[in-house]
């Protein structure tokens, strides 16, 4: 039983990381109908920004955190203007290729500046974790789970209760109709990119103390997060969260009880099962019609 509880905690913790990145995928997909393959690099860039401010410049952690997130908002604007906006009237394919190109550019730029050695970023708390009976709770994972719960509540409130959220929803459902109703579609898409960049950045900063800051950190999480979005249902916010958590728990238990080397295999086995038997995912619309 102790073992099960320990595995469950870790599974939910790592699943919450997937969920945060998956959320970024979903938001951009809903607004633009394309998958942003640079989403993982958003996390990586934010983690390196934290290293610059908090480690290299020695600024206070909270201040570095706020500046890094503000930097990510700006980054979202640049990404939208540089990668999506010039191609917005084309089909989804050139845009997807452009995001892949951006992802390669970002990881190699950071490699050129920082080199291949991983960097250390301290966690938010001084205590590494707490022992609760037989289970060890890593403080950083507790923070990640807490932030994920808050974001679920925030997203619900934002998209369902605020005018801006409703405008964003309208844009993602039908751009022409939204435009006829006086909603500025390009502004809404800009806001979506900013929000996704901040979300991806938040995931990167939260996970950096656990996984270290490295060039590959984004791409390895993004691959799982992508699987999580498909399992949850592409285009569904709740689906991204549930898909991410489910994936984290499944792979952790699969590794513990079946085989450690095939840990990643379980995640993708579940993905294949969903694509075959329920391509629309747990909550979402039919994937086959879209991407």
């Amino acid at each position: 039983m102790d073992l099960v509880l320990q595995l469950l905690f870790t599974g939910i913790g790592i699943g919450a990381v997937y969920a945060l990145v998956a959320l970024g995928f979903v938001l951009i997909f809903r607004a633009t109908n394309v998958v942003n393959f640079a989403q993982g690099e958003f996390s990586m860039v934010a983690a390196y920004l934290m290293v610059v401010f908090s480690v290299d410049l020695g600024w206070p952690y909270w201040l570095s955190f706020l500046i890094a997130l503000a930097g990510m908002a700006l980054f979202g604007v640049i990404f939208n203007l540089g990668v999506y906006y010039p191609l917005r009237h084309r089909t989804y394919l050139p845009v997807i290729i452009a995001t892949i190109g951006a992802s390669i550019l970002l990881s190699n730029s950071v490699l050129a500046i920082y080199g291949p050695q991983p960097q250390v970023l301290q966690g938010w708390f001084d205590t590494p974790g707490i022992q609760l009976g037989p289970v060890y709770l890593d403080s950083q994972y507790l923070l990640i789970i807490g932030v994920t719960i808050l974001l679920v509540l925030f997203n619900f409130w934002f998209f369902e209760k605020t005018l801006l959220g409703k405008k964003l929803q309208a844009t993602s459902q039908d751009k022409e109709m939204a435009s006829l109703l006086g909603i500025s579609v390009s502004t809404m898409i800009m806001i979506t990119f900013i929000y996704s960049a901040v979300l991806g950045g938040l995931a990167g900063i939260l996970v950096a103390p656990v996984l270290f800051v490295s060039i590959q950190m984004g791409s390895t999480i993004a691959l799982k997060a992508f699987a999580a979005t498909i399992i949850g249902g592409f285009g569904d916010v709740a689906g991204a969260i549930v898909g991410g958590l489910a994936l984290g728990v499944i792979e952790t238990f699969g590794a513990a009880y079946i085989s450690v080397p095939y840990k990643d295999g379980f995640a993708f086995l579940v993905l294949i099962a969903f694509l075959v038997f329920r391509p629309q995912g747990i909550f979402g619309e039919r994937v086959a019609e879209k991407a």
């Binding site: 320990q6 595995l7 870790t10 790592i14 990381v17 656990v210 996984l211 590959q216 390895t220 999480i221 952790t252 590794a255 513990a256 450690v260 080397p261 095939y262 840990k263 990643d264």
Partner: peptide
């Protein structure tokens, strides 16, 4: 497997 994010198991 290389690049595992978690080693709890």
């Amino acid at each position: 497997a290389n690049q595992s994010q978690d080693f709890t198991p």
